[in-house]
Each structure stands twice: as C-alpha cells, then as structure tokens.
Write a protein that binds this DNA or RNA. Structure first.
Lengths: 232, 232
DNA sequence: CGTACGTTTGATGCATGCAAGAGATGCTTC
DNA sequence: GAAGCATCTCTTGCATGCATCAAACGTACG
C-alpha cells in the first residue's frame, strides 16, 4: 500500500506515466543495482528494449532525486549518501514529520485518525507476535499516513524525495529498530496520536519530533561508512 | 576563450556562463516567460542554438522542480502555483527555516554570525534611507545566510527548490512587506540573531518561525488567484 | 624498474530524422 | 446557422548516427 502512495507522489512530480523512470528507481532503491554500480545507458536501453534517449532522461531525473550520480563523459553510478548526508536527511525528516503531525492535529476529524488508531493496534499485534516484517511495514505506513494526512501536497513531495534518499537506510533502520525500540516506538506513536486527537499541534509536533529523533539516533549510529564511488 | 560569440539573442549574451538548465530556469523565474506561456522545444532550441535534445532534458528538470508543466504530446508551459500551493510552500518554508535557525544556533561561532549582524545593520540603513530594493535584497540574503549557516546541504537543497517555486511570489512578498513590515521585520531578525548568539536552538527556531509566519501571512493574503493553466 | 606519454576504447553529449498524437481548422450535411 | 466529422498542422516521443572526451592500456624511455 505504501508503495502505491509513494509511486503516486512520484508521478505527480514528473507528470509522466513513464514507467521506465519508475522501473529504474525501483531497481536502484531495491538494491538490485547496488551502490557504486555503473548504469551504462546502452545496457539499460537494451535491458528495457528502448533507445538511449528515454534512458538518458530517466537517469537525469534520478540524478535530480539524488539516487544516482552522473559523472559527465564518464557514466552514471548508483549513489549512496555519505554518513553526513544521512544525518542531514534525518534532521530534515524530523522537521518535516513534525510539521506534518502539527498540520494533521489542526485538521479535526479526518479518516486518517482512524487509520492511525488501527495502525497502532496492528503494530501492537505484530509486536506481540514478533512479526518484525509486518511491524516495519506498519511503522512505514504510520509515518506516511501522518504525512498524507497533513493535507499538504508540497510537504508530501519533499518528504517523498527525502525518503527515497533514505530508502537504502530504511532497511537498516528497521533492522536496528526491530529488536530494541519496538515497544518504545509504539508508545511514542500513541503519544503522537493522542496529541493529534486532542488537537494539540504543538504537542503533536514535539511528540513526533521526539519520536523521529529517537529512531534516527539508532539508525545513524550504525550508518555504513561512505564509500567513495569515484575512488575505484 | 568563450569570446567567440555567434551572433545570438539577448538571452544568451545575458547569461553567458551556466548551463542551459540554468538559463531556462532564470528566464522562467524572472517572468520573462510568463506563467502559462508555452515553451516549445524547437523554439527554445533555436533561441539557444542547440538541438531539441538538451532543451528537452532541461525542460524535464524544470518540471521536476515544479517550475513548468509538461503535458504529454501537447507541450510545456510555465507553471504558476495555485494559491493553495503557495500556502503549502509557506508552511514548509517556516518549518525549514526554523530548522536552519536551530541548527545554526547549535554551531557556535561561525562567520555567518558576523554576516547576519552586518546584514541587520545594513537593513536598518536601507530602511532609514527608504531603499526598499536594497532592503528586499538584504532580507533575501538574511534568510539564505541562515540556511547556508545551518551547514546542512540537504536542507539547502530542499530550501532552494522551495524558494524557486516561490520565486514568483517573492516579488509579491517584497512588495507587500516593504511599506508595512519593514521595521517589525528587522526587529524579528534581531530576535532571531539574538537567540542564535545565545546558542538557544529552540528560541532561535521559534523566533524564526514566528518571523516567517508573519511575513507569509501578508504575502498569502494577496496571493493572486490561481489560473488553471492546464484547464484540467 | 618506474614513469611519462601516445593510443585505444568505451561511454557520453548532441544533432537529426521519422512517426504519432492532440488540438485546431474547415468542410460537409442537415 | 449549427453540429458532426475528416483533415491538417504543430508539437512531442523516440531511434539512431556521429563527434567528443575521460579513463585504461600499452609502449618507450630514463
């Protein structure tokens, strides 16, 4: 489901039904083409049975999204953010999600609130069952629900770009959050929802920011060292 | 070295350096191509003495930046945000600049602090002289100095995208801020800088957000009605 | 043996040709 | 005169060819 939301956001961004861009993005985000891997236009063109031109355009878009690096006259490579960029992105994430929670709290009764409530209940179930995969999915949905519930399309856009750049580390985050922070995280989700239900924008923002910050710390701690793609 | 100029239009003589993308962006942001204006690839290609291919790539980038709208098989048009989007962007602006101020406050003594101090002094001078153009420029610089001083490249990136989309309305904001909010704005700038100098991230964030919010309200109030270019 | 340098290679960057679609135009018909 | 329809034009979307350039390779030389 969250895949749908993300895809829709991206399509809004490029206004194109271009499946090629989506396919390439998916391959990069999924790690099928690992960080540092070259993405020769001709190879991709043959791979997807199109000419180099649309491949080129898609790659330029991906560069703009921060997912690949185009070195002029040399080639395109899958990009992995440096540790520093990871920290920067998490700072942004905290701010944007705080804004989203605040905006949602202002909105009064909207269907998103029920969804959040059900999400938390499902998360508790997943935690009890030890179903960490389901739990990770629910966490993802929780955050996206709040962002979407903010009813701010530009915020959605920027958040989507940000999360794409963090996608590679989302796995890490989930891996590290699973054992240690499951219960704490659920409690924090509850606090966020409480503040939203009380129509307390400031409280919701602070709760959200605290939650994101706590999660980020764990992830940033184990962020992999930044390999210099060009160095090889 | 690049003096060998092929007799070209004023556009090219104007921005000699910079990529085609930058030139096009400038023309859109400056309003030279007004909102709703069509941007045919062939026309631009001849205008800049290149082929359609690089023009196409640049236009796709601009679409990704939210500055133009590409209607498939129809054409590319200069995009103007709807009033709603303006409000959304200002909400984001407040959040991002708040984050920037907070981060800067954490950083200790950096050259940006002196720059901010000098900026405020110059602003006071401009205000006394009634030099509204200079004042507007200084306001712009103040905000960018804080964002750059945050030492967060991703924040800079997102903020730049955001401000590009607001560029068209920045003029409006400056126009409306000039008579009414000059002095108040300067005081708010001072408050922001004070909090930063005191290394008070929370205070700096709140001061910044209050300031941005106050400025935004005036601008949003007179934001032009959204002409639906696409007719969709 | 190590270094400097000319050559080769492989990829990109751009120009151009062709086809297809959306919208405008004008003709036909009633 | 108005509505419906075929056509026509202008645009984009994509394929392909050629020039260009960075990096790798191999060779000659100190």
């Amino acid at each position: 489901m969250q895949e749908m939301l993300q895809a829709k956001t991206q399509e809004q961004a490029n206004g194109n039904q271009g499946s090629l861009l989506d396919k390439l993005r998916k391959l990069v985000l999924s790690g099928e083409y690992p960080p540092g891997a070259p993405l020769p236009e001709l190879f991709l063109a043959e791979e997807f049975d199109v000419s180099r031109t649309p491949v080129r355009e898609a790659l330029k878009q991906l560069e703009n999204e921060g997912l690949v690096e185009i070195r002029p006259k040399v080639g395109t490579f899958v990009r992995i953010p440096t540790r520093r960029e990871i920290v920067e992105l998490f700072q942004l994430k905290e701010s944007l999600e705080g804004l989203a929670a605040s905006l949602l709290a202002r909105r009064g009764p909207v269907p998103e609130l029920d969804r959040l409530k059900r999400n938390i209940e499902a998360s508790e179930g997943a935690e009890r069952r030890g179903d960490s995969a389901k739990y990770a999915e629910l966490v993802h949905e929780f955050h996206w629900t709040i962002v979407n519930g903010s009813d701010n399309s530009k915020l959605r856009e920027h958040y989507g770009r940000l999360m794409n750049q963090l996608a590679y580390h989302r796995i890490v985050l989930e891996t590290v959050e699973r054992p240690a922070r499951m219960r704490a995280s659920i409690r924090e989700h509850q606090s966020v929802l409480e503040a939203i239900l009380e129509k307390d924008p400031t409280g919701a923002e602070l709760a959200m920011r605290g939650h994101v910050n706590a999660s980020s710390l764990a992830a940033a701690r184990i962020a992999p060292e930044s390999p210099d793609v060009a160095g090889n």
